[in-house]
Amino acid sequence: MSETKKSILLSIGLLFVFIIIGELITGDGARNKQNMTEYEKLMGMGETQAHVPGPIEVFKLAVKELSNPFYDNGPNDKGIGTQLFFSILRVMAGYFLSVIIAIPIGFLIGMSPLFYKALQPYIQILKPISPLAWMPLALFVIKDSIMSSIFVIFICSIWPMLINTAFGVMSVKKDFLNVGKTLEMSNVKMAFTIILPAALPTIFTGLRISMGISWLVIVAAEMLVGGTGIGYYVWNEWNNLDLASVVFSILMIGIVGMFLDSMISFISKYFNYQE
């Protein structure tokens, strides 16, 4: 058996182990399954204690949610697809905004030691600030919760891009630059035909890190600003004490995050080169 086949089998085996353990350690909400009278239901006399949902319960919910993911029954009841769509939209908006700004500035920093030294202290101070710390200021200045969450994504994804672009540009091999010089390339031509392709793999590393951080931060940001989005959805279901939905949305956050990451790494394959 090949290594890949073995690994797939092992993965599936582990999945079953997790499901079995999950079923064993979680309650099944037995009280909810009993036939309750109309009165009991109205009085909320189901379970006295909420329970962590087992894998099967979550799976049933997932099937139900995913079979109709884009419904919209008002602000408090939207499909998981709708919520994820809003979150992805915000991440994309903030992310592309920072691509537009970080890559040119990163280029400038990488090409000019003067700018590198001048901007270094600002980058070092701004970089470690938790993106959510910007939220109050953003809300006050922008006066719009959606735009504020986009700003938070922008501010958290800009640093890895900026630093990786600058680093990639700085570490372009001198030999490659010499090739350009001996071919009498102008600075602009050099930037696009030598420096950019040489630095692209490093730039893409930055893009990938940024995408990961953006997806981490959007959940937290939406918990704060509310309204729509997967972060809001998680918090809302917590307030509803619907733990099956909470577990389900946690899984969905993971799956979408994996998808976003593999998207970037798929694109980056076209720009990677081997020496």
């Binding site: 010499n178 001996t182 071919l183 035909t193 040489a198 692209l200 080169y273």
Partner: peptide
């Protein structure tokens, strides 16, 4: 300054790794 009148062959070949062999030459 450098000039196209003075071609250089570098010790470590300095072929641009992201271009094909043909593109490396056509670019020059």
């Amino acid at each position: 300054k450098t000039s196209l009148d003075r071609g250089v062959i570098f010790q470590n070949h300095s072929i641009l790794p992201w271009l094909t062999v043909l593109k490396n030459v056509t670019m020059a």
